[in-house]
Design a protein around this nucleic acid. Sequence first.
DNA 1: GACGTTCTGGACTTGATAGTCCACAACGGC
DNA 2: GCCGTTGTGGACTATCAAGTCCAGAACGTC
Lengths: 206, 206
Amino acid sequence: MARPRSFDNDQVLAAVERQFRHDGYAGTSLDDIAAVTRLGRGSLYAAFGDKHELFLRALGRYCERKAAEAESKLTGPGENAIARMWEYLQGNLRFVFDDPDRLGCMAGRFAVEADRSDARAAELIAECFARQRAALRDCLMAAQQYGALEAEADGDELAAMLLTVVRGIDVMAGSGIDERLAEAAFRHAFTALPLAHRGKQELERL
Amino acid sequence: MARPRSFDNDQVLAAVERQFRHDGYAGTSLDDIAAVTRLGRGSLYAAFGDKHELFLRALGRYCERKAAEAESKLTGPGENAIARMWEYLQGNLRFVFDDPDRLGCMAGRFAVEADRSDARAAELIAECFARQRAALRDCLMAAQQYGALEAEADGDELAAMLLTVVRGIDVMAGSGIDERLAEAAFRHAFTALPLAHRGKQELERL
DNA sequence: GACGTTCTGGACTTGATAGTCCACAACGGC
DNA sequence: GCCGTTGTGGACTATCAAGTCCAGAACGTC
């Protein structure tokens, strides 16, 4: 009927996401985007709208992916809830330090950088963090139910603490902190969890 | 002999700092800077050089101020070292949350946002964080000496942990986290310090 | 294979921004 | 009060980026 798309939406958005994460919003021009996607401006505008729309699409895709990842990695039984959290949070560290450019979390970056008048970006980021916090809290409460976490522990607060540390590590990584020191910092923060008997046993096995 | 300066360097840099913190590097134009300083472009270029030089001057001024603040607030005897750290870190929280715009730490912002090719900015930021960490470590070791912190505790790692949490709170604040939750997150992270007997007593008095 | 429709990419327009330059202003010394 | 020197600020230029537009390309259909 008509000429078909020569590109895959998702591949294009992946390239756009990389670009925005690498150079920031103001730092990437449409020429940069055209270069990394190998598309012309006309195609980009027809398919995605203007630069800001493209940014929101890329950010939304990232946030959805990361929130879904948290939910899938953290959901499970109380028996290994502590181990799941440990693995998940360690995965976040590796996400930063295994990247040669140490770009860190895109949501974290634009939580700091995005224009405060950009309500749509702020909403995407806030929802991403909220889902990650909720997944951590649910995992903490599963651990609590099982007897791995003290009964008086506040899951919401501890979830916020863990997520905060991971966000902080992104920033410190950006300033060139030593990877081992960052891992030690995370390890210490994790020990702030008031583990009950079963939780301590679980942690020792890691 | 000649016409005197009509402005004070430090006041101008203070206004420039505010502007860069508010809108970021790419987000502020020279017209913005001219507006907030009430100076013409010619004066700005003659006094400070180009935009990037002006940015480095403002960032350097901020970093020096914050590093010196950490050193002055944290230096002291072991008897109240835990209390000093608590006050200092709480001050960092208030620095974020008492600001209606919640701009957060300038060094943290540009640790994330700055072009990685900007070696001079990276150096200023890294040195700022290094001095803050060193001040925290020295304070922890004073506490240790006094018997407020367990003898086996690693001051470098714990200092990195505390600083990381504070940087993370900046990011979370930018995403609109509730202030009380952020304070709770900080409180929990602080309890990760392996306090010895005297330290626990000291903390209870706060 | 001609046609209609959608896709494509580069040329073009418009606005903004960084940096330069210069005519003039404001002082102190003589 | 004139002069040399330095500060001042706006006009000017050159560059660059965002967004528009259109001529042609690539399909399916008949």
